[in-house]
Design a protein around this nucleic acid. Structure first.
Length: 261
DNA sequence: ATGTCACTTTACAAGTGA
């Protein structure tokens, strides 16, 4: 199975690139974040024409997640129990083949000290509690999405600059470690080994992509039975370039995970 | 560190969230 995750920053703005992406990679499943569209306005038809159905949990203008698949999808959940922001569309889970795919768009947190940062930590606590009760350690589970956290300093272009700041602070990293302690493996890090990156996000401002100022915040966590079948994890870095396709790029690059069937 | 982008609104500019 080929499973991708991509924060598209508006699925309608990114539609030509999304269609080109599925034709280029032929993924079985794509988890999208920041679709920024109500379910009724999700662009299902051009995806259906390419053999992909979509399950969406959206809202107008902000947040929004969707799972796009060429394999049958069976919805498992569309809410995070105990979320401090229950009105936000941030979670969607579905059964695909023999894998439970959980698509998440984590709270950004703005900056350490901001009330939104405390909401972020509480949101991860709710995710951990839910995962600990729902994720069957003996089952096949993948939690994919925009975590808005760099798991450690290898995931940051300049650790000294980022030390202690939102996206790199210790309390958020502790929350992500709590998820891996449930028995989930960070597949991107396992595939890459002990190197810097590969990054998946570059801010739109300051020419961050051109300057290499990236972060690895788009992750796929897999249960043991998924991790043992891991073949590869790739980042479609080309897709972040303004010249890579029609229209402007998202500030995130897609991550593509291949798992042996 | 913030040189941009996408969205919204009693809309033709400014605020917001990232």
């Amino acid at each position: 199975m080929r499973l991708a995750t991509w924060n598209v920053n508006s699925v309608r703005q990114r539609l030509p690139r999304l269609l080109a992406f599925v034709e280029r990679w032929e993924p079985d499943v794509v988890c999208l974040q920041e679709t920024k569209v109500a379910d009724a306005d999700f662009p299902s038809e051009p995806l259906l024409a390419r053999g992909y159905s979509a399950l969406c949990h959206g809202q107008a203008g902000r947040n929004g997640v969707a799972i796009v698949s060429r394999l049958p999808l069976e919805e498992v959940a569309r809410a995070l129990p105990g979320s401090p922001v229950p009105e936000d569309a941030r979670v969607l889970a579905a059964r695909v083949d023999d894998i439970t795919v959980v698509n998440i768009y984590a709270v950004n947190g703005k900056e350490v000290g901001d009330p939104a940062y405390e909401v972020k930590l509480a949101w991860f606590d709710a995710l951990h509690a839910w995962a600990a009760s729902v994720v069957d350690p003996a089952g096949r589970v993948a939690i994919a999405g925009d975590f808005n956290v760099t798991p450690d300093d290898r995931d940051v272009h300049d650790p000294d600059l980022w030390r202690g700041r939102n996206l790199a602070s210790e309390p958020e990293r502790t929350r992500v470690r709590a998820l891996t302690d449930v028995g989930l493996v960070d597949l991107g890090r396992r595939a890459a080994g002990d190197v810097v990156g590969p990054f998946t996000f570059w801010d739109y401002r300051m020419g961050a992509f051109h300057r290499g100022w990236g972060l690895r915040i788009d992750l796929v966590l897999g249960s043991a039975l998924v991790a043992e079948r891991l073949v590869s994890v790739e980042v479609d870095r080309e897709e972040r370039k303004p010249t890579a396709g029609e229209g402007k790029p998202s500030d995130h690059a897609p991550v593509i995970v291949t798992i042996d069937d």
